[in-house]
Design a protein around this nucleic acid. Structure first.
Lengths: 389, 389
DNA sequence: ATGAAAGCGCTAACAA
DNA sequence: TTGTTAGCGCTTTCAT
């Protein structure tokens, strides 16, 4: 009965198992397990014998079995709306960096911004027994995050606040960032300032609009309704939005574009019309991207701490996994206004200083060599603000 | 004995298990399993009873247990050198799109291009029992892929050929692509053409250099040694490489940059020196990116079928999983030369036609409205070439 | 200090 | 057609 080889399916490639190691080392599986877990109460002679056998057989534990036994494993699920947007992948990079150090792997699901796929990915990841979840929600405010609550998986949201889901959130100070950008344009003498914003009904777009309004209001400038355009955070959307602005009878003289991809589209529309930047149209982009310095003129932008968003999210998640009962937190990271030429603040000559092309890890100092070109846009001095909710 | 609750660890959130469903529906677990697997030989009344209970209890199978039992699960590991490079994430997007349809999830490991991390990720993914592996190898030709062979996991490499590892490979026709780009520059009258290439010793850089040499050779133009620079595929590297070219006593008048990020760096160096594109320096970029149309002038580039690389890789992997014994294949996808203004072929007026900013899914036709601006660079008519090795 | 054995949730061979 | 049960590889309690 014992030997009747009931299954040919399992362990198809005859992998080394703990049992084999135990047999080879002439100890019990319990001892092998203990050695591998680094528990004490094992005689050194035993420990050595096991370690050597493990090495000799090139044994690697089966984390599936381990996970089944333990009820979880060192894998974090990540749900991201768009793999093609460098902002999101930058965030994931930050998440990965932090989690890798803690010995976790990432299981990434891509929702396409679709609520249905998002839901689906959730289910998949839950079935996979992930230890936690990083959620970057899609554009649709309609998504039913409520139904995700019973999943009971430690979850941290980044950037987008999933409506109705009381989870930890880390995001940039969108409102402050845009307010600062618009204030800067105002200080340069601009009055006709437009905004190409994200979709209505999602929190980041709402906050960015708020910053725009704050700045104009405190300068005593009335809002011009056609200068406020809601688009979709995508390149084509930015292109179309900019064309709408350029078709206006009364043109704006400056525009703040609320994300990276829309800015690319907007720039193309501007270029196509032969409109000069910044003379005819000043441009500021929310979200600093590698190509900002390669554009002509270089792009003034509001830099989000992209990787930091990911890192911080990962830290919060690790803490929540450790203590699921801890109060929900919201971390708001400061943005930085990086002044280049597209807003009209600098002459071309100033910008063409020989400087590193892209802020390296120690980006701050690199930028500061161009003294004063960078301003911190945030309310806190340490660039880190925790709200306990 | 039975009820002594030995473990408080496993199944921490008291998830619904198949056993509970079976109890609730008053059938055996086998029946539940059969219903869920869609096997026949189950009476309809039973099937309905189970289905309803499954729905009512909101049961979701534990894929870990399933995976342990079966020896594999519907997860594909992906190893990628750089999450911050849109080319790689574009490929992953393609992989994901294809695999999602087949019901697979992705488990992504990020190697940072480091051989050691790559190896590490390999081990992790193996322990995780992934059903297959998509490998985009790092820049280091030193990586020891040989040692990965015994893993026995179905593997497909994309873009980079992992030295010494006989696996399916899908890549773009690098040689043809660069040859075409250089030929185009030659046809515009350029003679002093430089190349900023990737690191020596990796296959894609080797092939791209080959294409450069092919084109010059067939035009009877001797190679100028300082015009050939090896860099690292990163933005900073491209910046430095371009500065080296611009410091030359005898300047090139055109440059082909062998990847997306290096081009950004090169452009910045060019802009900093106040050098005009294309009048003083024609620029062609290998790899078309969303920002190519937003640059001024718009960037002539060799488009790789980014997502297609991923999709095809995924298909090959699925086929290999189905039949691990099938012969190793290599798929080479055609590139497209997209002529814009940075090579000097077009006047600004021509380029500023009102056209969609970015090729949508039906990219081909969109580009063709600008008639003749796009040329197919590839040896095959169907854009798909399979070599059986 | 070490080992025996239960059992995590599932699949599938075998029995009925 | 349905049920019973072994066992995937691991961790951990309990016994020795």
């Amino acid at each position: 009965m014992k030997n009747r080889a009931r299954n040919k399916l399992a362990n198809p490639n005859g992998a080394i198992t703990m049992k084999k190691v135990a047999a080879e080392a002439e100890v019990s599986v319990a001892t092998v397990s203990r050695v591998l877990a680094g528990l004490d109460g094992v005689k050194d002679s035993m420990r050595d014998r096991v370690s050597q056998t493990v090495a000799r057989l090139n044994y690697h534990p089966n984390t599936l079995a381990r996970g089944l036994r333990l009820g979880h494993r060192k894998v974090i699920g990540v749900i991201i709306p768009d793999l093609l947007n460098p902002f999101f992948t930058g965030v994931v990079h930050g998440v990965e960096a932090e989690l890798y150090r803690a010995g976790y792997t990432l299981q990434v699901g891509h929702s396409d911004g679709l609520a249905e796929r998002e839901q689906n990915q959730f289910k998949l990841l839950r079935s996979e027994g992930v230890a936690g979840l990083i959620l970057i929600a899609g554009n649709k405010p309609t998504a039913n995050y409520e139904s995700l609550r019973p999943f009971g998986i430690p979850t941290v949201a980044i950037d987008r606040s999933p409506g109705g889901l009381a989870v930890d959130l880390v995001c940039a100070n969108n409102r402050e960032g845009v307010r600062h950008a618009v204030s800067h344009l105002l200080s340069l003498g601009h009055r006709e300032i437009a905004i190409i914003n994200g979709p209505e009904g999602i929190n980041v777009a709402y906050e960015r609009l708020g910053g725009y309004q704050d700045a104009l209001r405190s300068a005593g400038i009335p809002l011009v309704e056609p200068f406020i355009i809601h688009s979709d955070f995508r390149q084509q959307g930015g292109y179309e939005a900019m064309r709408r602005l350029l078709d206006l009878a009364k043109l704006p003289r400056a525009v703040v574009v609320a994300n990276n991809l829309m800015t690319l589209g907007a720039l193309q529309a501007i270029n196509e019309r032969g409109i000069r930047i910044p003379e005819d149209m000043a441009v500021v982009c929310f979200d600093d991207m590698p190509w900002a310095t390669s554009l002509r003129p270089p792009l003034t932008s509001v830099a989000q701490p992209v990787q930091e968003l990911g890192r911080t999210g990962a830290q919060l998640l690790l803490e929540r996994i450790k203590d699921p009962k801890r109060p929900v937190r919201q971390v708001v990271l400061a943005t930085r206004l990086i002044v280049r030429a597209s807003c009209g603040a600098l002459t071309a000559a100033q910008v063409e200083l020989p400087a590193p092309p892209r802020l390296p890890k120690t980006g701050r100092s690199a930028m500061q060599t161009s003294s004063g070109l960078e301003v911190e846009a945030g309310t806190t001095s340490n660039g880190f603000c925790i709200k306990n909710l």
